[in-house]
Design a protein around this nucleic acid. Sequence first.
DNA 1: CATGGGATTGACT
DNA 2: GTCAATCCCATGC
Length: 205
Amino acid sequence: MGGPVVIDEAFFARDVLQVAQDLVGCIVRHGSAAGRIVETEAYHHDEPASHAFVGLTARTSTLFGPPGIAYVYRSYGIHALLNAVCEDETSGAAVLLRALEPLEGLDEMRARRGVQDAEALCSGPGKLTQALGVDLSENGTSLLSGPVRIEPPPAGAPVVRLVAGPRIGITKATDLAWRFSEQGSRYVSRPWPAGGAAAPGGRVY
DNA sequence: CATGGGATTGACT
DNA sequence: GTCAATCCCATGC
């Protein structure tokens, strides 16, 4: 897709659907652990599946912060989920990182996750934060200059083929095809329908 | 102040 | 396929 080479605040300030697609193929790093993003979902305060739908509260203040910061929250009392805040302070928009292809610090990830299989280390939004060692203390920190960083794809990396479909694990706004992943990746949180075809209502890019 | 519901995972029938 | 674990916080009394 010839996406942006530079990841800066302007990268995250764009439309959240565009950022969600462009983040697939980028690198997330925390300490010596790093992985390549293979699956994302977009959320926006205009639709009820978003935490920001309720407006500005203590919980959502991070979502209504500047683009390029991390929104980390606890899900089901157990898991930390990592998002990248997008658009401007009025949007309450963010991209949820749902799965990574582990690249560096595999043994560190295995120790934190308690599993060996590389395909199971980061194949879910709660799994990848556990593997990277990301927790709620990183909420609100910069993804450009903070402890958790997002980097552009390595130079010469092949163009990513994207598949879009409905978001997972939500009960509202399930008609929106705002989940994006790399076509054919073995590291996604849930496999797509056989043959690499787009899910119902989805689309292949 | 009490209650209830998750953007999930892993164990189990 | 079902279900519990377990914490934050929005909501309502």
